[in-house]
Design a protein around this nucleic acid. Structure first.
Length: 470
RNA sequence: GGAGAUGUGGCCGAGUGGUCGAAGGCGCUCCCCUGCUAAGGGAGUAUACCGGGAACGGUAUCGAGGGUUCGAAUCCCUUCGUCUCCGCCA
């Protein structure tokens, strides 16, 4: 790397953020300690070797070809680097000779060489600056390009093209008109949007009594299931993270608007995928420690910019919500199998709760930025009379690992290779609460609660129409 | 928040402004010896980029950024992290 690239987007680690609410000009923001690598967002070599394949895979996502733009930047950058390095080599050589000249007291020769070094240095600096500028351009371009879909991912435009791959459970036959969760008699006393709005504004909720306890029970149940039966390691992590971490998992630079940032520069995690995945940020881990399977229960914060007007009723879409997240750090060989495993872990939660769901393979057009393949779990919501997303399980290949510079050394030595990462909700707690309430609702406004939760509710089995656990 | 210390390769740890990409140890790989094991001997072992079919050559990197210098791991400035003590605090 010729020179340290300047951050090409609005904020930069180590400095107060332009986007921060209420700028603190003098206060340095929290920063990471890792350096930036300019080439690591996508495999530039792979693009060089087969630009058509790169464009073809992006084309499946509905994106225009970009490889020729990338490659022309890349070759311009490489030409500058080569020229600059040649000059630096000459500079280093002359400098060394200057040292020996000085050593033997040859002042005339020393002065001549000193001037030569200065000249070379000057020329090299110009070329370095050029290379650096091209580097930043290339980096920004690569940072903005989403992950390549696996060949197995169905091609499509939007969510209408997603493919159902599995369905479990049968929605109950009801002899009454099902209500949405916030409209169920037994739920109303414990789900207070008015007070939450007073405290925090729109898209917040305040839970009380039985509903609050069911919510808590759900999170505990999920965590316990994952750590005792699925072998995930329980983890508790910060919810404030550095910009580097958000960049590592792909929330930045493109999607900064979707998250919140403190005045000091920290970001509030939109999901603990950020913290769990970045546990290996910048690390060279022992292959024998893979796969690393983690789970965490955390608060999640999302600005929900761009979803104004959607799902405004109830607690389906909130600025702050809880989620039990699963993350696996693994390698290229086991990534796809791990994805299937993780999907099963999430499905198991729903099955234990007796909640009907379907598993969808997202099409290329509906997949998230960092994913190579994503399965969404959609739970049946009788109040809405439809399946709604409650979990999303993605395999990211080495996409995040490249951004994080997270690698492992293969068994038996050899060059370090990027780890592969996966993440999935297991599950969104708030949405699970909704599903439990809506699916368990009775004609009288009470709610029958899943057996799996009873131990977490002190043996209580129902939410009465008055809102009490009984 | 105040004072001090510190940040070196997978890990630990040495380091004089040029002979340092960096001693030594651990770990790892290969080989030898030892009829198993334990121990021992030898060799190798940073990352990224650029050029090259390769051998290899070049450039950069000693938390990060900047500066002084012909030349910086080593000097100066800024900044971040860590540790210790004090203060405050769930």
């Amino acid at each position: 790397m010729i020179s340290q690239p300047v951050s090409g987007y609005g904020f930069s680690p180590g400095r107060p953020c332009a986007k921060a609410i209420g700028t603190h000009g003098e206060r340095p923001g929290p920063t990471g300690t890792s350096g930036k690598r300019t080439d690591a967002m996508h495999d530039i070599r792979a693009i060089r070797e087969n630009p058509a394949a790169f464009d073809a895979l992006l084309g499946r996502r509905g994106l225009e070809p970009v490889s020729s733009a990338i490659l022309s930047l890349d070759s311009a950058r490489r030409a500058k680097i080569a020229a600059a390095e040649e000059l630096q080599a000459e500079q280093n050589k002359a400098s060394k000779e200057a040292g020996t000249a000085k050593g033997r007291g040859d002042d005339a020769e020393f002065e001549r060489l000193r001037a030569l070094v200065a000249a070379k240095k000057d020329q090299a600096a110009t070329l370095q600056a050029d290379a650096g500028a091209l580097d930043v351009q290339l980096r920004d371009m690569l940072m903005g390009i989403p992950n390549l879909p696996l060949e197995t991912v169905p091609v499509g435009k939007d969510e209408d093209d997603n493919v159902e791959i599995r369905r479990w459970g049968t929605p109950r036959e009801l002899d009454f008109a099902p209500r949405e969760h916030f409209d169920i008699a037994g739920v109303k006393p414990g789900m207070d949007f008015e007070t939450a709005a007073k405290l925090s504004g729109a898209r917040f909720v305040l839970l009380r009594g039985g509903v609050a306890r069911i919510h808590r029970a759900l999170a505990q149940f999920m965590l316990d299931l994952h750590i005792t039966e699925h072998g995930l390691t329980e983890t508790w992590a910060p919810v404030l993270v550095l910009s580097d971490m958000m960049e590592g998992t792909g929330q930045l630079p493109k999607f900064g608007e979707d998250s919140y940032q403190t005045r000091e520069g920290w970001w509030l995690i939109p999901t603990s995928e950020v913290t769990l995945t970045n546990t290996v940020h910048g690390d060279l881990v022992d292959h024998a420690t893979l796969p690393r399977r983690m789970t965490a229960h955390s608060q999640c914060f999302r600005s929900e910019a761009g979803s104004a007007g959607r799902d405004t009723a109830g607690m389906l879409r909130q600025h702050q919500f809880e989620k039990v997240e699963m993350v696996s750090i693994t390698d290229a060989e086991t990534g796809v199998a791990e994805h299937a495993r993780m999907t099963r872990c999430a499905e198991t939660v729903l099955e234990r709760l007796g909640l009907p769901y379907r598993t969808m393979a997202l099409c290329t057009g509906d997949m998230g930025f960092g994913a190579r393949i994503t399965h969404d779990l959609e739970v049946w919501l009788p109040g809405q009379n439809k399946y709604r997303e409650i979990s999303s399980v993605s395999y990211c290949g080495d996409f995040q690992a490249r951004r994080m510079n997270a690698r492992y050394r293969p068994a038996g030595g050899g060059k370090p290779e990027f780890v592969h990462t996966l993440n999935g909700s297991g599950l969104a707690v708030g949405r699970a609460l909704i599903a439990v309430l809506e699916n368990g609702q009775q004609a009288d406004g009470s709610v029958q609660l899943p057996e799996a939760l009873h131990p977490y509710l002190g043996g209580k089995t129902r939410l009465s129409a008055e809102g009490d656990l009984i």
